[in-house]
Amino acid sequence: MIRALTHSLPLQRPSRVPLFQRLATLHTLYRQRRQLARLEPHLLCDIGVTRDAAEIEAARPVWDAPEKWLVGNR
């Protein structure tokens, strides 16, 4: 029973992205979210984002990013 269960679990490949590169990506995401929160209303309108949406995005934790945004997941 245990053997069958372990074979059915998906195996995750260890990430090969260097730690420094990951940290740099997370820092960039943090900076971008802070800048988004400070944009003036007419600039938010230009990019099609409401003030509420910008504040929600800026409040997200840095590790809460879509997989495709992170380095090494392209």
Rank of each mutant, 00 (worst) to 15 (best):
A58P: 01
Q21K: 12
R38K: 12
R74C: 05
T6N: 14
T50L: 05
R33A: 09
I2V: 14
D46V: 03
P18T: 00
Q35Y: 07
W69H: 08
E57R: 12
T6M: 09
C45D: 13
Q32M: 08
E57C: 07
E67Q: 09
R22P: 00
R33K: 14
R16E: 08
L9S: 06
I47G: 00
I47S: 04
V17M: 04
Y30S: 11
C45F: 10
L29D: 03
L44E: 07
V17F: 05
V62D: 09
D46K: 10
R60G: 01
L26T: 05
A65S: 15
L9N: 07
R16G: 08
A59F: 05
W69P: 00
S15G: 14
E40Q: 13
A59T: 06
I47Q: 05
T25R: 14
Q32T: 06
R13T: 15
S8W: 02
N73H: 15
S15L: 13
Q35G: 02
W63T: 10
G48H: 10
I2P: 01
T50P: 00
R3S: 10
L9R: 14
L29Y: 05
A54M: 00
R34P: 00
R31V: 11
C45R: 14
A37R: 04
W63P: 00
A54K: 00
V49N: 05
A24F: 06
L9D: 08
H42T: 12
D52L: 11
A65I: 05
V62M: 08
P18N: 02
A53E: 14
P61K: 10
A4W: 10
A37M: 03
E40M: 03
R33I: 08
L19V: 08
W69L: 14
A59I: 05
S8N: 03
R22K: 09
A24I: 05
L11Y: 13
P66S: 15
L44R: 03
S15I: 09
